[in-house]
Design a binder for these strands. Structure first.
Length: 275
DNA sequence: GTGCTTGTTGGCCA
DNA sequence: GTGGCCAACAAGCA
């Protein structure tokens, strides 16, 4: 599930529970797939006793910073989630990392194991954080930058281009479909055929979808909504795309589904034409 | 049993 | 060298 705003949602969940707390125990799963490349003894040593000081989310990546210049990076992959459990929780089959703090049990669970855990000790910014593209809601995400990127990827379907993290960090499958639907652009259009007004619309809708997706998970004060779905209105494609016989919330016409750019894609043929 | 799945990477090919 | 496509990764669900 995790795209941009959902990643922020999970970051907040751990942060709100445990910021300021110290890690008493670090448990890692025997299956090391998510921990690939880590020096496990060093990982355990550095995190044990460390205090959670701050946390950050960018694109689909999270960083939890602990005392002693310890960075814990988490990518949720396809099916990862961060949970907060009570003390005494016993880890399940898919719990790959468990941090027991003074008051909580922080759990990273991921059945499909496409996620990844990163780690860094030092006052410098780790490479896995530095390499992230500038956020869509930052000033660096300009119409000109998008235009240039679409030109370079001109022969690829626009759907595939929107999934490229080097320019559209945090956009995943449903966000890409949402952005194209709101922009009235057919997902199979070659990126290089978009007209300047279409690119401007696409740029604007990228920003709108990001902004509103964040708002949907923001909650009020310290409370988080149960999940992203409760915050997203029925006027979005989001709430119709997976339903059998789903209809476009703008036109009322049936939605179409196909594999485009190698991914399941949903669009409204009434609004998004191939030209 | 079959055929999907909200992500990323590396290999192959033009 | 660059860009585009696709299989692979693994497990759960309908």
């Amino acid at each position: 599930m995790p795209e941009l705003a959902e990643v922020e949602f999970f970051r907040k969940r751990w942060h709100q529970a445990a910021v300021g707390e110290r890690v008493a125990t670090v448990l890692t799963h025997d299956r090391k797939r998510l921990l690939r490349g880590l020096n496990l003894p060093q990982f355990h040593r550095a995190l044990t006793g460390a205090q959670l000081e701050s946390s950050h989310a960018a694109a689909k990546q999270m960083a939890f910073r602990f005392s002693g210049d310890v960075w814990l990076g988490i990518h949720l992959g396809m099916s990862g989630e961060l949970k907060v459990e009570a003390l005494g929780y016993s880890p399940g089959k898919h719990d790959h990392l468990v941090l027991v703090t003074e008051g909580h049990t922080l759990v990273f669970t991921d059945p499909r194991m496409f996620g990844r855990i990163e780690f860094h000790v030092g006052s410098d910014v780790p490479h896995w954080w530095k390499r992230l593209a500038p956020p869509i809601l930052s000033p660096a995400f300009t119409v000109a930058a998008v235009t240039q990127f679409l030109t370079r990827r001109g022969r690829a379907p626009i759907k595939a281009v929107l999934l490229m993290q080097e320019r559209f960090p945090g956009v995943g499958n449903w966000m890409a479909d949402e952005i194209l639907w709101r922009s009235s652009i057919h997902p199979a259009r070659r990126a290089g055929t978009l007209q300047p007004e279409e690119i401007r619309t696409l740029w604007r809708e990228c920003r709108t979808v990001c902004r509103q997706a964040f708002a949907a998970v923001a909650g009020r004060g310290d409370t988080l909504p149960a999940n992203l779905n409760v915050g997203i209105p029925d006027t979005w494609l989001f709430n119709h795309r997976w339903r059998r016989g789903g209809r476009c919330p703008k036109s009322g016409r049936p939605l179409a589904h196909a594999t485009i750019g190698g991914r399941t894609t949903c669009w409204s043929p009434a609004r998004q034409k191939l030209k």
